[in-house]
């Protein structure tokens, strides 16, 4: 260690800094000034926040013309790092051949990473703006198709954002 240039605390600091007191006073002054500044707090339940299109809230399924866009390919389920998604496919007479007979997202597992949305070949699962997620039980935290399907009109912001930036 002999040839290592040391840069100890004592060498870095001036005398006044080394006795601490003036620096402590400076720090205290800073926090005192901060006390007089206006606060940033939003009074949440009364004042609500409307997220931008880039916000990643609860993942939802896009409902278009009364049907889900989803073809139950299971890629979201495969890519999900938290294994939150379960998809079971079934056959339909529509052009898309298959649809999700069962689509469940376990919101207690979901980490809102948005991989499902990124991997989706059909733009069928997107992250919504819904950030208020409260459940009374573990079972309630598993959302089925009836809770996941959201009409495409309510998801315009996100779809716009995806097309523009992703």
């Amino acid at each position: 260690m002999a040839n290592v240039k040391t840069n100890t605390e004592a060498q870095r600091l001036t005398f006044w800094e080394r006795i601490y007191l003036p620096e402590i006073a400076r720090g205290m002054g800073l926090t005192f000034k901060q006390m007089l500044q206006p606060t940033f707090t939003r009074q949440y339940p009364e004042e609500r926040w409307e997220p931008e299109g880039s916000y990643r809230g609860r993942p939802v399924l896009v409902l278009e013309d009364g049907k889900e866009r989803c073809v139950a390919c299971g890629l979201c389920s495969r890519v999900c790092p938290a294994l939150a998604i379960e998809v079971r496919a079934a056959e339909t007479t529509d052009d898309k051949e298959r649809y999700p007979e069962k689509f469940e997202i376990n919101m207690l597992r979901c980490i809102y990473c948005g991989f499902c949305e990124e991997v989706c070949p059909e733009e069928a699962i997107v992250m919504s703006k819904d950030y208020e997620l409260v459940f009374g039980s573990q079972e309630e935290g598993i959302l089925g198709k009836e809770k996941l399907l959201v009409p495409v009109a309510q998801l315009r912001d996100r779809l716009e954002f995806l097309r523009q930036w992703k």
Binding site: Q34, M35, Q37, P38, T39, F40, T41
Partner: peptide, 10 residues
């Protein structure tokens, strides 16, 4: 309260 004020909260 003081903590909140110092941190810009309510």
């Amino acid at each position: 309260k003081v903590a909140a004020w110092i941190q810009g909260r309510v």
